[in-house]
Amino acid sequence: MAGGRRTKLEKLVDTIKEDQRVSSGLEEQNSAVPDLPSELWERIFSPLDLRDNIRAAAVCKSWQAVATSVRKSDRPPWLMICPNFGNSYDFYDPTKRKTHSLDLPELKGSEFCYAKDGWLLVFKPRTQGFFFFSPHTLELIKLPTLHFAHQIVAFSAAPTSDNCIVFTVEHVNPMAVAVSTCRPGDDAWTTINFENPQSIVSSIWTNIVFSKGHFYCLSLTGWLGVYNPNNGIWAVLSVPPPNCTEYFPPRNWWKGKFMAEYNGDIFLVYTCAAVKPIIYKLDEMKQVWVEMVSLGGMTFFANFLSSHVRADLVAKMRNTVYFSKALCHGKCCFTYSVDLGRYYPRKRPCNCGQHDPFKSIWIEPPEDV
């Protein structure tokens, strides 16, 4: 049990046992739990993560009943895959290794941009139009048009939220970028040009995540740009780029790097030319990328457009990197096990991402699977 979580749970057990001794007397010391209202027990157990919940459930039958009633665990995203022809989109479920299909004519002629909270951000090159789309509810929310030449774009929250901001950063010249933002309901995008503060920083950006009120962007050369939408300030952090043995030229700007956010932490997976993926976690206090030898039970779902991290998944999925590359006609997914130090399948494709970076994306599954 981790330090903080263990202390909280142990204090809970010690407090209950002490209450039993004081209030019940010696004849009741063998009772596993005091007689408390079920609502109070649910409030006590609800904050526990899956690991501590399971351990608490092993104390006695009474605890087991309460713990299982409030037990929560993460659900892995599904891999949504564009069809080569027609409007039938595949959704690969990595838990059951099954593929579901859904006819979505609303997405015809569109490219994926980003996915979050069960929503897609989609771009139609023919009309230069953006829109949000929920493949599970078929809701569609349009955005203003914007010239979009394969730069990256992201949003902070579901478009039904008041906190939703759409953000993109575009290469202007080797020393400048253009930051564009808008909100659902706006008539136009707001665009501001910024100079890069360091000449060694490329103005081509390859990944975006939203964390703690800021948009973090990874440059082609591995530097980290940050945009604060509250005050409109763009900056490049003085965090040295992670080590990578392979240089990707501008024409392959989307290859090899996958960045994701989880509970305020930022993670990065580099495939490069190494035998195995290199996993980093950003230490903002020390301004460095720290290489991780283990995912600590987490699962990384890598995708050029939108990567995700999950914890508390079923045991067979933990400590694994899932790449957005469906194999065997969508019946399995290309993965890397950190514990075993091997890929599945063993024969590694030349690209751990996907051949077309705009044709697949990880998205939350429907609530009523």
Rank of each mutant, 00 (worst) to 15 (best):
residue 191 T to Q: 02
residue 32 A to Y: 07
residue 327 L to Y: 06
residue 68 T to I: 13
residue 369 V to N: 05
residue 26 L to M: 15
residue 25 G to W: 12
residue 27 E to M: 14
residue 256 G to E: 00
residue 181 T to R: 06
residue 72 K to I: 09
residue 140 L to C: 12
residue 19 D to Y: 15
residue 173 N to W: 13
residue 37 P to I: 05
residue 366 P to H: 13
residue 349 P to N: 12
residue 79 L to F: 05
residue 282 L to E: 01
residue 365 P to F: 12
residue 39 E to G: 13
residue 273 A to G: 08
residue 315 A to P: 04
residue 56 A to S: 11
residue 37 P to M: 06
residue 2 A to S: 06
residue 261 E to P: 04
residue 345 P to M: 15
residue 113 C to Y: 02
residue 192 I to G: 03
residue 127 T to R: 13
residue 101 S to R: 01
residue 350 C to Y: 07
residue 152 I to W: 12
residue 50 L to P: 10
residue 18 E to H: 10
residue 213 G to F: 04
residue 369 V to Q: 07
residue 333 C to T: 09
residue 258 F to V: 04
residue 165 I to R: 09
residue 162 D to T: 13
residue 281 K to L: 01
residue 166 V to N: 04
residue 110 S to L: 04
residue 316 K to I: 02
residue 274 A to C: 01
residue 5 R to G: 08
residue 187 D to Y: 09
residue 256 G to H: 01
residue 122 V to P: 02
residue 312 D to P: 00
residue 76 P to R: 02
residue 100 H to M: 00
residue 260 A to D: 03
residue 150 H to S: 13
residue 79 L to G: 06
residue 177 V to T: 05
residue 244 C to K: 08
residue 38 S to Q: 14
residue 364 E to L: 10
residue 211 S to A: 13
residue 364 E to W: 07
residue 123 F to M: 03
residue 236 V to W: 13
residue 129 G to L: 08
residue 74 D to R: 01
residue 256 G to C: 01
residue 244 C to P: 02
residue 178 A to Q: 12
residue 27 E to G: 12
residue 195 E to A: 03
residue 125 P to T: 08
residue 204 I to N: 08
residue 161 S to F: 08
residue 248 F to V: 03
residue 131 F to L: 06
residue 17 K to W: 10
residue 230 N to A: 10
residue 182 C to M: 07
residue 31 S to E: 13
residue 226 V to C: 15
residue 141 I to S: 05
residue 193 N to L: 04
residue 231 N to L: 14
residue 196 N to L: 15
residue 225 G to V: 15
residue 5 R to I: 06
residue 309 V to I: 08
residue 189 W to Y: 06
residue 213 G to W: 07
residue 148 F to H: 15
residue 347 K to T: 09
residue 202 S to N: 14
residue 184 P to L: 02
residue 63 W to H: 02
residue 203 S to W: 02
residue 273 A to S: 10
residue 135 P to N: 06
residue 238 S to Q: 15
residue 116 K to H: 00
residue 334 F to P: 10
residue 2 A to H: 03
residue 166 V to L: 08
residue 25 G to M: 13
residue 295 L to M: 07
residue 265 D to A: 04
residue 221 T to C: 10
residue 282 L to R: 02
residue 149 A to P: 04
residue 52 D to E: 10
residue 291 E to L: 00
residue 295 L to W: 00
residue 255 K to Y: 09
residue 13 V to C: 10
residue 21 R to Y: 03
residue 339 D to E: 11
residue 73 S to I: 00
residue 16 I to C: 09
residue 270 Y to W: 12
residue 286 K to V: 01
residue 324 S to Y: 04
residue 46 S to G: 02
residue 301 F to V: 09
residue 6 R to I: 00
residue 138 L to Y: 14
residue 346 R to N: 14
residue 152 I to P: 09
residue 195 E to Q: 07
residue 324 S to P: 02
residue 172 V to F: 11
residue 65 A to M: 06
residue 356 D to R: 15
residue 138 L to K: 15
residue 1 M to N: 02
residue 219 S to E: 12
residue 157 A to K: 04
